[in-house]
Computed example of a mutant assay.
Amino acid sequence: MAEHPDIVLLTPYARSLGIELSEWEDGVPVMRVEFVEAVEGRPEHFHGGATGGLLETAGYAALRAELAERGRDAVLKPINITVQYLSAGKSQASFAKGRVTKLGRRSANLTVEAWQDDRTRPIATAVMNVFMGEPED
């Protein structure tokens, strides 16, 4: 899969949290967010909404990379997103990576994992269903 940073389009919300592209891993973008005031919930812990935002951003980034690899362009709209919070995010950087589990003509299913220092111990996971509309000319 191609590794093009311009594939990873960040929403204003993602940019406001400080989410950025960390690296490409096996052709899939890994997203990162540092622990800053904008993501803090209770003292020295990530806010659940910031964790959800990181998961969602990583999911869309993985889908855009897959679509680019296939030469497809689409307007992405969420159908649903289910987040499972597994443990509290502490005051350090968090990472997330998505995986396209099914890519259809009009919809896609994804799974996403977020972790901090130990990738084998995710702090949260998500399942996403995304509608893919035709781009407007």
Rank of each mutant, 00 (worst) to 15 (best):
A61V: 11
A61G: 10
A62R: 04
A62M: 06
L63M: 10
L63C: 10
L63K: 08
R64E: 11
R64N: 08
A65E: 15
A65H: 12
A65T: 13
E66I: 02
A68T: 00
E69M: 09
G71F: 01
G71V: 00
G71S: 01
R72Y: 13
R72T: 14
D73Y: 08
D73V: 13
A74W: 03
A74Q: 04
V75D: 13
V75K: 12
V75M: 14
V75Y: 12
K77Q: 11
P78L: 08
I79D: 12
N80L: 05
I81N: 06
T82V: 13
V83A: 10
Y85L: 07
Y85P: 01
L86R: 00
L86I: 06
S87W: 01
S87G: 01
A88G: 15
A88L: 15
G89N: 04
G89W: 07
G89T: 02
K90T: 15
K90Q: 15
S91D: 11
Q92W: 02
Q92S: 11
A93N: 06
F95M: 12
A96E: 14
A96R: 07
G98C: 02
V100E: 04
V100D: 01
T101L: 15
K102I: 08
K102V: 11
K102D: 11
K102R: 13
L103E: 09
R105C: 14
R105H: 15
R105G: 14
R106E: 13
R106Y: 05
R106P: 03
A108G: 02
A108R: 00
L110E: 06
L110N: 06
L110T: 03
L110Y: 05
T111Y: 09
T111W: 11
V112D: 09
E113N: 02
E113P: 03
W115C: 08
W115Y: 06
W115T: 06
Q116V: 09
Q116D: 10
D117C: 03
D118S: 02
